[in-house]
Nucleic acid binder design. Structure first.
Ligand SMILES: [Zn+2]
Ligand SMILES: [Zn+2]
Ligand SMILES: [Zn+2]
Ligand SMILES: [Zn+2]
Lengths: 159, 159
DNA sequence: ATCATATTGATATGTTATAACATACTTGAT
DNA sequence: ATCAAGTATGTTATAACATATCAATATGAT
């Protein structure tokens, strides 16, 4: 299922599963899954939406896990670098990764109605961009692919 | 040539040509190509790099075309809506469109060394993302495709 | 001329992100 | 046990990006 986020699912299990995966991943890689980092990921996982750094910070603050911007940004940096979360550039916001895999080039479907973000598990089609890059001798290190629009349920709601 | 920006070319002619095109486009569409707007586009065209709104503003200010943020943002909004410029989401910056065509889904190659941005003139490859979107019933309205990496000349420079 | 609309001018504020520096906690070597 | 090195946090301040609002002016249509 490529757009899980738009579908009904056992979300509690979904979160628990992702947290377990994150814990194992960090253990394997020798990364420290500290309380702030773990809770930050959990907060992102609760939603299948992108949260701004300051949204995350507000929640952390309520739980006395920190109150200053760097707290949120450090946690987000860690999660992004660990591959456990992604930044949605078009929103300047962050979303938990729904992938189990390791290195991947995510592509996102972002609903402007409900802000839900689905991560397409496309192993990525080497599209024309790669061809163009190769032709120009350009070496791609990171690719941002974000599609904005309306999810099925928001299409109904709208008019 | 899809990655013109990385190649040597007659840039003065390149700018003049784009300005002429913009003037004609606005005339056709009944859009007002005012001095601030025209000069803003020209400033973007000088570089083939993405400029931040405040970089543009600084230049406009030097020329007494305005000194407050809204001046730059209004000009950029106009240019983006008119299809004469694009926003690079990954940089929160703006680049002049190098396309003549009308409606297009641009894809960018962004050099992290020299900040040059090339707009690939892909007429759009319906990649896996579109397939995934269709499968999920998601209606795509706008797509951001931005590849970051190193241009040929910066690859040499970097050790 | 009058009215509506679009553009500009100006001030203030909101939002996102990082710099800079100090402190505490781990870890591994002596 | 002690130390040094590295990693993680705490804290303050500020940089960088973006918009809200309202008044003034210009433009164009009736
Ligand atoms: Zn879920
Ligand atoms: Zn939706
Ligand atoms: Zn040029
Ligand atoms: Zn370069």
């Amino acid at each position: 299922m490529t757009a899980l986020s738009f579908c009904a699912h056992d979300h509690a299990a979904c979160v628990a599963d992702r947290m377990r995966h994150a814990r194992e991943h960090c253990a394997r890689e020798g990364l420290k899954f500290t309380p702030v980092r773990a809770r930050s990921l959990e907060i992102l996982l609760q939603e299948h939406r992108a949260l701004g750094a300051y949204d995350l910070l507000a929640q952390l603050s309520r739980e006395n896990l920190g109150s200053q911007p760097p707290v949120a940004y450090r946690a987000l940096d860690f999660l992004v670098k660990a591959g456990l979360a992604h930044k949605i550039e078009a929103l300047n916001a962050y979303v938990a990764c729904t992938h189990s895999g390791t290195d991947h080039t995510p592509a996102f479907l972002i609903c402007r109605g409900c802000n839900v973000v689905a991560e397409a598990d496309t192993a990525l089609s080497p599209g024309r961009l790669d061809v163009a890059a190769a032709a120009a001798g350009f070496e791609i290190e990171h690719t941002v692919i974000e599609a904005q629009g309306l999810c099925p349920s928001c299409q109904e709601t709208a008019t």
